[in-house]
Nucleic acid binder design. Structure first.
Lengths: 124, 124
DNA sequence: CTGTATCCAGTTGGATACTG
DNA sequence: CAGTATCCAACTGGATACAG
């Protein structure tokens, strides 16, 4: 692939780096954690309360992935007990804006989707 | 929830309908199939060739889900052997535009993510 | 060509217990 | 509080065989 040409990136190719990024977004909790951190810094327990339904294990795992990809920064304060804060990096903010487009879309089109499902059941 | 107020929709609530839409997008192949159909109608075998790495089973399953949600319409031509075409509905086109924002983001920020990963490994 | 059906390995993710 | 470690059930998804 000619990596000097942005158009050469092919999201449909499993070996293309852009596909890897796309796959990461497809992980179950990634989008929701990004949206939760969009308004500002949160502690681990606050995140867990915000993203309803996520388990401790999955929250930790998702945060590690986002940290690794440079989306989230993690700060530990040596209080007793320990305090840990998570914040979006500029890169993370940029991505969360794109994810927010999807959230807005979802909310705006709920009714149409519900109608389509009802009709599908009817016909099926 | 007050369904007359769009602001009442809470993507973080597992029982909110907007969350269901968001979850659907998180399924592995949904985004890629939407992007593949964005430029225009494709047959089953063409789709399969385009979305590299998808199996027949997963393509069928993903298309059924999109059809059920009113994103994709399916047309069967009684040729021998049979021909089946898939096209985005207006609703599907609208969603694929939002997904395309993510594709563009992914391609634009690959380098930054790679750099972050390298640094993370270094520190880790 | 466009599916459906079945089997099965691998992964995901929840529950629980424990630690600094 | 913020994790880590372990076990295990459930689901995902690939391979294969078969059908209209």
């Amino acid at each position: 692939m000619d990596t000097n040409d942005p158009m050469a990136y092919d999201i449909f190719n499993p070996n293309c780096p852009s596909r890897a990024v796309f796959d990461r977004l497809g992980e179950r909790w990634t989008g929701l954690v990004l949206l939760a951190l969009k308004p500002g810094t949160l502690r681990f327990s606050e995140l867990r309360r915000q993203v309803q339904g996520i388990t401790q294990k999955m929250l930790t795992q998702t945060l590690r992935g986002l940290e690794r990809d440079g989306m989230v920064s993690r700060t530990v304060y040596p209080t007793v007990p320990v305090t840990v804060e998570y914040t979006l990096t500029p890169l993370g903010h940029s991505l969360s804006a794109a994810v927010d487009v999807l959230r807005a879309w979802a909310i705006e089109h709920i009714d149409e989707i519900d109608a389509a499902r009802a009709e599908y059941e009817q016909a099926g």
